[in-house]
Design a binder for these strands. Sequence first.
DNA 1: TGTACATCAGTGAACGCGCGTTCACTGATGTAC
DNA 2: TGTACATCAGTGAACGCGCGTTCACTGATGTAC
Lengths: 216, 216
Amino acid sequence: MPYAAGHRTEIKGKIVQSARRLFNRHGFDNVSIAQIMAGAGLTHGGFYSYFKSKSELYTEVLGCFFTDPNWKSCWEGVEVDLASADVGPQVVRAYLSRQHFEDVENSCPMVALPTDVSRSSPHAKRAFETVFEAMVSVLERSSVENGRPRRARAQATAALCVGGMVVARAILNRVRADELRQACMSVALTLGGWHDESKLQNGKSKRSHRLRAEKV
Amino acid sequence: MPYAAGHRTEIKGKIVQSARRLFNRHGFDNVSIAQIMAGAGLTHGGFYSYFKSKSELYTEVLGCFFTDPNWKSCWEGVEVDLASADVGPQVVRAYLSRQHFEDVENSCPMVALPTDVSRSSPHAKRAFETVFEAMVSVLERSSVENGRPRRARAQATAALCVGGMVVARAILNRVRADELRQACMSVALTLGGWHDESKLQNGKSKRSHRLRAEKV
DNA sequence: TGTACATCAGTGAACGCGCGTTCACTGATGTAC
DNA sequence: TGTACATCAGTGAACGCGCGTTCACTGATGTAC
């Protein structure tokens, strides 16, 4: 038996990562199999020994983010510790960060590909749902009790994070995009109970200043 | 001069409407010019006497919704009166309604096409921005003063409406999608100051019941 | 250690297809008389 | 009212191109001796 045991697994991983980068940048339909395989250092012909079809790749790519234990590497430099009690505000800040806004290639697929998924197979939608539920679940566990249902708040917070990023990337004016991210971040932090209301009213607290200075 | 004066304007409108329906359903890239022209009752060859290129159509299609005085027709059966003082909650309810969720063809392009736009030309992004700003502006004017900046709240509310719909359409489970819309609607109404907080805590008010009965 | 070999990962030519775009032409139209 | 006509909206064949997918083949690999 030629080739080491883990060879195919390793190559398949390279193909998925190449596809993830290209899909994030150009969408499902504007990426050819030849491009994906070239990104993995291969030629197009070998693709079908790894996947039944192009659309089968969609599901695989969606699953490799957020639910993947290595997802943190996608946001290098942004600290998110899933074990921390502070994970809620950390996720919100990382998700709506300038870094995530700019790094389209390593973006969360919920930001880069949601409408592509809504036009895709039930398999892709299920994979998307899993990623979204994982995010809601993290936010829910971390949110502060305030009399309103935690789950509903967590769902709205997640939708706000995704929506804020999707819209910020679709508008032309960069200043407005930044303003939108900040507005969504502020409201999202309040929803989870991680933000002092007084800070939102005047924006003069230390934390607000720090956030602005860091250009988060 | 053969053909009446308004003939070309009328036909151009038909092409744009056909494109809007097809783009909403399949995205920019999965719709051919032949399909668009067929939807307007024409053949593909005539397209280039109306538009310089396919991508020029994107801008035109984005502009025809929301900023268009006739946009209301897109949500038949959902009452939204832009002159009303109550326009904020009306827009939120209509936007996150089941009807809007289901009627992909006549959907707001911000829900159906945001990632397509983020990969498109600056022209398309500017058109998207105009639509989004129009929505923010309506929400801002209608929102209730509560000590926090109205504009930031309006921006977050709009992002929440768009994000909630985008995610709801991308997940498989219909019940979860409904749950998500409701959660986003509830939070969005609170953000604008149009919702009694007490109603959110137990969901037993008349209004909550009416909303549920109407399956909004 | 060196060599011959079976395996199978990867190659690239070929397929049918539909796309965006162009253009010479057709024929429906309102006008002039 | 009826007819001949100039205009130009719309047609459809044709173009080059890149796509997803297939498949006969090549050659790199680890193993057996």
